[in-house]
Design a protein around this nucleic acid. Structure first.
Lengths: 267, 267
DNA sequence: AGATATTTGTTCGTATGTATT
DNA sequence: TAATACATACGAACAAATATC
């Protein structure tokens, strides 16, 4: 590993060359249980030894084993059920949970509008192209039902805010339908950032009447292209949509920021 | 939230509309501690109440509180130290740990070479452009030192494999230097996938003499463009590099797969 | 260097909750 | 309803780590 590159581990292949640092007993046991899963190539739903057996196997106390299990549960690698026939089972980290965990990484490193749109401009067009030929009539219905939520001008600020979120939902629906799980996940995560970042909430709360109408126009064209199975048009439309959205968001960002600067200045 | 869109939570803004599902006591306490962090807007390094105080505050047993803390520690939100002056402190989820957690999501959903390169082709060129004007001479040294590892033809299979990983390291170094944290993180994660996925390991283990020489050529041109602060050239060079790499990887994928079973290949 | 105080980490035994039969 | 098999919760005692004097 080159100097300057952080060491990176993953359950995909456990990084066996242990560093000097001594693991706590709990983490040691969590690693051990992960190894059980990998070595026995267990699949989601498969059963792990129960608490009693783990206690005996790892020669640790109940609490310590439970802390290890808790850690694995937090990572989405296992889940447990009480009662007879219950126990701990191999789990699959859900999409929403994965986004939640990743969200923590950006909590103290709040990215800018520009950072987010640099990614969206490149990936959303590919996402749109990727779903061509993969949509059922039920999928189109879901997309159109989402669009219904913002086809009329908003009556008040509250509705305008909800409409912006619904517009994000439109993109999220598309993201979940992509046959490329990475593309779908990343785009979905970008939407989450837009929903949750403070600066975005401020922007969405400020009025911008053109945005809705233009967004609606792009999305109607997009659906037509998707129904025609015209990947190239879908890509082009989404690219234009994103470029428009970026300009608009960055303008609003400037206004919102300026507004706050003014507020900060107390005479 | 539109129908069909999974509910998504995040510490960025705690999703207060609690679902029906009853939380376990442990998770309840973990949520409570997260709320403490958010409400008091604590920053990394700030101190949390110690175990005794948490036990009293939440009226739970020591083990239960400790499980809650373990969960938060697993998420990178806190870290603890023993001894006087020790305690639990707000933490920042590290980059490598975030990648590890996200890696779990793709463990049972192994993406294909095509999935990964669909993202890389779009983002790596932007990454290259983004670092223009941000590199110090120390950064160039790091990049060139990494390239040294594969400037000669490999003497054996083992060395060839290590050279491929070093080539990935080159890109990872670049990813860490990007001023766009999202772009940098996503690209770095793609490199992780390439390092760890079974199919990629098989591909890297099979010989492909052209790949190294062409990769080297692109990276030398890239460094020149970066030194000239020529973002457009950097973008173009990286794009060509990625297109070449995709072709090469997909060819190797076909060969490796054919060598095993002709399993479920996508059309 | 050694004693000591502080705080997390681990152990153990017991009791309670929950879902199946 | 009762018996069961399992996770979940409790709390006191003890161990280990790490600062300070």
């Amino acid at each position: 590993m080159a100097i300057g590159v952080e060491d990176q581990g993953s359950i995909i292949v456990p990084p066996r060359p242990q560093p000097e640092r001594r693991l706590k007993r709990t983490d040691d046991i969590a690693e051990g249980i992960k190894d059980l899963i990998v070595e026995q190539s267990l699949s989601p739903g498969d059963r792990l030894p129960n608490e009693r057996e783990l206690i005996d196997q790892f020669k640790a106390s109940k609490s310590t084993v439970r802390e290890a299990l808790k850690s694995l549960e937090t990572q989405g690698l296992i889940r447990s059920r009480t009662g007879p026939g219950g126990g701990t089972f191999v789990g699959q980290l859900s999409r929403s949970r994965a986004m939640e965990l990743l969200g923590n990484y950006f909590f103290f490193r709040q990215p800018s509008i520009g950072d987010i749109y640099a990614v969206r401009i490149e990936l959303e067009p590919e996402l749109a192209a990727s779903v061509v030929g993969h949509l059922t009539s039920a999928d189109y219905e879901t997309l159109e039902r989402t669009m219904n939520l913002y086809e009329r001008p908003p009556r008040d600020r509250g509705e305008e805010y909800r409409q912006r979120l619904a517009e994000l939902d439109f993109h999220s629906v598309l993201a979940e339908l992509s046959p490329n799980p990475i593309l779908g996940f990343i785009c979905g995560f970008m939407h989450n950032l837009l929903r949750n970042l403070t600066i975005c909430r401020q922007i969405y709360a400020s009025p911008n009447p053109d945005l809705r109408e233009q967004g609606l126009h792009y999305q109607i064209s997009l659906i037509r292209a998707l129904k025609d199975e015209d990947a190239e048009s879908a890509r082009r439309i989404m690219r234009e949509h994103m470029e428009m959205a970026r300009r608009s968001m960055e303008q609003s960002e400037a206004i919102v920021t300026r507004g706050f600067l003014r507020l900060d200045r107390k005479p």
